[in-house]
Each structure stands twice: as structure tokens, then as C-alpha cells.
């Protein structure tokens, strides 16, 4: 009996020593690898428009900056700026009109990078049904528009530029389904160039139809699209975290847009977008490159101050905001990456 008791005591001691050692080691390793946790709320669902965000996450760009980033899918019911204020996210993607509306309502938000240099929101039109060489060519046409959406503000600005009123055109209310466009009830339809336009284009090509794109920027309307935002409080209290996040994110975007990394970018997308074929993803990625990095001399993420001011002016003219918000005051220069 005695030797057995001794064994039991020494076993117990060994167990407690091992437990203490495990706790100590795990504590040390935890301190050594403690990465700051932040939430990043995207504007839309996981698709090619967020390839750089996903790339930065999957290929450890955030981890290299000692950040543990939870990249969260967006959607129509999500609003990154609201989540920043509620403390549910530390970074987010918002469209310029969202930022300007939020500023107009007193939100403390700052823009730390501009993802799209060219707004992907454009119009697809059938070239056999209409010819557009100037804005005046829109007269008498049925034009698809999402009432309340960005495209309404853009289209109304374009019409005003051409001295056209609502009476000169027929505005057709656009919804989730493309049936009116596919049935040729409307031949001028707003699309996101790097996502919906790829699917619609394929259908039109299958049907032997010819089409082109109406790009508002070609007529001098540069309404800013998605940008990366954070709260002023975050920037004031944790400027280093903001810098590290921006650097990692833009490095991720740069790598994903690099043609040399094409296959890796496609594989990254396939992990999240399981419904699209490789061909579709490839076409979307090629178009996205042209929207994110159209000018090799301009770094990805650069904030286009003039375009932001124009966006604010458009919203002011159309009474979408009651007074100027001086948006330039919340635009932060991007760090070197």
C-alpha cells in the first residue's frame, strides 16, 4: 500500500507541475504573438470587387503587420459607418455618398483610402437601339435608374449638364431583376461594370446582341465609389493601428492587382465566391484592375480630392444634403506601403 501512495503523490505533483508549465508557456507564447484584433466590414458580398481585401487577409498581409483582422461580408442591410460608431467594427468600406451623408448628420468618420479610382457604376446599352456620342443623345430615350441610389444622382447630374429635364427622357425604375433590359423594354441599364455587367454581357453575347458602356467619367462626372473608412476616435487614439491596417490592406490590393499574381488572386476568390466560374472571375478581375489601378503612376488607394469635392457638390445641388460638409477635411493621405 505505501509504495502505491507515494506513486500517487508524485504523480499528482508531476501533474500540477506540468499544468503550471503549460499555462506559463501558453501565457508567454500568447504575449509574444498577441496581434491586435480588429473588425473590417465590407460594403458588399464577397466577390471580385473585394479581391484585395480578401487577398490581404488570406495571404497574411494583416498578420505581418501584427493585426488579426476579421473581414466581414457586407450587404444591402449593412452600413460600415454605423458599425464604426457602434464599436462593432474598427474599419469599413463605404461609398462616398454614405460618407458625405454621415458627415452631414454629425458622424465622426475619416477616409483612409479610396479603393476605386473609376466608379464601377456605369450604364450598359444596346448599340443597335441607341447611339451615344454626346449627352444630348440621351434625349427621348428610356433610361434605367435606381431611384434613391447613386446612379440617380449621377444620371440627374448628367442630364443637367446636357440641359435636359426629366420631361426630355423616360426614367425607368430599376429593380433587382434584369428582365426589362433582357426583354428590350429598356435598353440603357445601370450595372456594376466588374460584376453584373459580366453576367449580362455574356447573356447579350449569347443572344448575338452588341452593347457598349456609358461611362459618366467620360462626361466629366466623377462620383466617388467605395473607400476605406475608420472613426475619428480610432485615428486619434490608435494612429499606429490605422497606419498598419492601411499599409497591409493596400499591399494586399497591390498584390491582388498584379498580373503576376493572377492565378493566386483567382484561387483566393474561389474560396469565397463558389458560384462563379473561373472564366467569369477572370473577366471580372481583368475589369477590376482597370477600375482600381487605371494609371500606373497613381498608387492604389490614392484619394482623388477633386472627385470627392465634385461628389459633395453633386449631392448638395440635388439636395441630398442640406449644407456643405467640407469633405476634404476628413480625407487622409495614404501612408507609404
Amino acid at each position: 500500500m505505501k509504495p502505491h501512495k507515494k506513486t500517487t503523490i508524485s504523480q499528482k505533483m508531476l501533474f500540477f507541475i506540468s499544468l503550471a508549465a503549460i499555462i506559463a508557456i501558453s501565457g508567454i507564447s500568447d504575449t509574444a504573438t498577441a496581434a491586435e484584433k480588429v473588425n473590417y466590414r465590407l460594403k458588399w458580398l464577397f466577390n471580385t470587387s473585394v479581391v484585395g481585401d480578401l487577398y490581404a487577409d488570406v495571404h497574411q498581409f494583416f498578420a505581418k503587420q501584427d493585426l488579426k483582422v476579421a473581414v466581414k461580408e457586407g450587404g444591402p442591410e449593412r452600413d460600415a459607418i454605423r458599425e464604426l460608431e457602434m464599436g462593432r467594427a474598427q474599419f469599413g468600406v463605404a461609398s462616398a455618398d454614405q460618407v458625405i451623408r454621415a458627415l452631414s448628420k454629425g458622424a465622426q468618420v475619416v477616409v483612409i483610402a479610396q479603393l476605386f479610382q473609376i466608379n464601377p457604376l456605369q450604364w450598359m446599352y444596346r448599340t443597335d437601339k441607341m447611339t451615344i456620342n454626346s449627352l444630348a443623345d440621351l434625349k427621348g430615350q428610356t433610361l434605367g435608374v435606381t431611384f434613391g441610389g447613386n446612379d440617380e444622382a449621377i444620371l440627374r447630374t448628367l442630364l443637367a449638364k446636357a440641359s435636359l429635364t426629366e420631361k426630355d427622357v423616360d426614367l425607368f425604375s430599376v429593380r433587382y431583376d434584369y428582365t426589362p433590359f433582357l426583354q428590350k423594354k429598356v435598353n440603357f441599364w445601370p450595372v456594376y461594370r466588374n460584376s453584373q455587367a459580366v453576367f449580362l454581357g455574356a447573356k447579350l453575347r449569347q443572344a448575338g446582341e452588341s452593347f457598349d458602356f456609358f461611362i459618366p467619367g467620360d462626361y466629366g462626372v466623377r462620383f466617388v465609389a467605395n473607400s476605406v473608412v475608420t472613426s475619428k476616435k480610432m485615428l486619434d487614439t490608435k494612429p499606429e493601428t490605422v497606419r498598419k491596417f492601411t499599409v497591409a490592406l493596400l499591399q494586399g490590393w497591390q498584390a491582388s492587382m498584379n498580373v503576376a499574381n493572377n492565378d493566386t488572386a483567382i484561387k483566393t476568390l474561389q474560396k469565397y465566391d463558389k458560384d462563379s466560374t473561373v472564366e467569369t472571375l477572370q473577366e471580372q478581375l481583368d475589369i477590376t484592375r482597370g477600375l482600381i489601378h487605371p494609371d500606373p503612376n497613381v498608387p492604389i488607394g490614392m484619394i482623388d480630392m477633386a472627385a470627392w469635392k465634385q461628389t459633395e457638390q453633386i449631392m448638395l445641388t440635388q439636395k441630398l444634403i442640406p449644407a456643405p460638409v467640407s469633405v476634404e477635411k476628413v480625407l487622409r493621405p495614404i501612408p507609404k506601403y
Binding site: 459607418i81 454605423r82 460608431e85 457602434m86 451623408r101 454621415a102 452631414s104 448628420k105 454629425g106 458622424a107 465622426q108
Partner: peptide
């Protein structure tokens, strides 16, 4: 209570 802006709750 949470000092939210008019953008979150008017």
C-alpha cells in the same frame, strides 16, 4: 446614452 450621431439614430 451611447452618444450616437444623427446618422445612426436621428
Amino acid at each position: 446614452g451611447l452618444n450616437l450621431s444623427d446618422y445612426v439614430i436621428p
